[in-house]
């Protein structure tokens, strides 16, 4: 009987611990804005540097390692606003966290790099194209473009001998692809800036063949490739009146600032703990394609983007198309 009592006690203690742990996430005294490391962090570079404060509220700006942290922190309320990959924003919304997409902020930093020149995507039939992250958005985007162009593909690390299909092969990040291009094991690969610039610098004879956002525009009749968006939790938007307009102005201002001040932008990121090591210049910043388009104008582009991602696997956007309420009006 004693043992049973001890066992029940342990369960109660564990449950209590979990409750307190869950509860402390909800308390916060200030506003927090987070951004994933890498090129998307450029979207708030000036804010990372100036740390502007809204009214009487204290705002903290933070770089986090990636999309997984963004989604977790927005979902549990630790952060209020964030730059998030567009499909992740839809995902968070569909999984029950009430958020709003405030603006579209990055318009494509993916490029197809090759050590051999091709003039048309169909020239890649019979070749192996490396991509970063199987099942991720670069993969789904490229497959979507190939589908729209009527080019067949299959997953393989060896090329199709008959030359009828494009072989798609995957690495987990740009850092692994660059050595493969250098040794000649890979001839074509899709990379995100600033890894593209790093590859072009390190791999002799490599060229930037296509911008994925240009190919996207080709197959979607000129739509923007809305890769990442700025989102806010509905409760924070309601609580801090006027903050969306205030933040929108800052995001808009940042676009011109990073274009004019690459070195300062880099320093701002480094100070905030970014692991970005490539020396940024005006050209790389331009290739990162940071912009600012309010949600109401970017809505149709974002919807097309989400529809395309969901056409492969609805799980990529959290199961279904989000309702129109996701767009901040």
């Amino acid at each position: 009987m004693k043992k049973l009592f001890v066992a029940i006690l342990i369960v109660i203690i564990a449950a209590a611990a979990v409750f307190t742990f869950a509860a402390c996430n909800n308390e916060k005294g200030s506003i927090k804005i987070i951004v994933p490391d890498g090129a998307p962090a450029l979207a708030i570079a000036k804010m990372l540097k100036d740390k502007p404060q809204f009214d009487k509220y204290e705002i903290t700006y933070e770089i986090v390692p990636g999309a997984a942290e963004i989604s977790a922190k927005i979902a549990n309320g630790e952060a209020d606003f964030a730059i998030a990959p567009t499909n992740i924003a839809a995902n968070i919304y569909n999984k029950g966290t009430d958020i709003r997409i405030i603006s579209a902020n990055t318009f494509g930093n993916l490029y197809l790099v090759g050590t051999e020149s091709v003039s048309d995507l169909s020239d890649l039939k019979g070749e192996v194209v490396y991509n970063i992250g199987m099942g991720g958005t670069p993969d789904l985007t490229f497959k979507y473009i190939l589908n729209q162009m009527g080019i067949e593909y299959f997953a393989s690390d060896v090329a199709d001998e008959t030359g009828a299909k494009v072989a798609l092969h995957y690495v987990s990040s740009g850092a692994e692809l660059i050595p493969l291009l250098k040794t000649g094991n890979a001839k074509f690969g899709i990379l995100g800036e600033p890894a593209v610039s790093q590859a072009l610098k390190n791999v002799s004879g490599s060229i930037r063949l296509f911008a994925i956002h240009d190919l996207w525009a080709d197959v979607t009749e000129g739509l923007d490739y809305t890769q990442a968006v700025f989102v806010g939790r509905k409760d924070a938007i309601d609580k801090y009146e006027g903050i969306v307009e205030w933040l929108s102005d800052l995001l808009d201002e940042n676009v011109d600032w990073i274009a004019a001040n690459p070195a300062e932008a880099q320093a701002a990121l480094a100070d905030a703990g970014s692991t970005l090591t490539v020396a940024l210049n005006k050209q790389i910043i331009r290739a990162c394609n940071i912009g600012f388009v309010p949600a109401k104008y970017a809505k149709s582009d974002i919807n097309a983007y989400l529809t395309a991602m969901a056409s492969f696997n609805a799980a990529a956007i959290g199961g279904k198309m989000p309702e129109d309420t996701i767009y901040y009006q």
Partner: peptide, 19 residues
């Protein structure tokens, strides 16, 4: 069984499917 019970309680407490 106890493990699953704790998991269940924790999931209700967190109440965020994503986490």
């Amino acid at each position: 069984g106890v493990f699953i019970l704790i998991w269940y309680i924790a999931a209700i407490a967190v109440d965020i499917e994503l986490i």
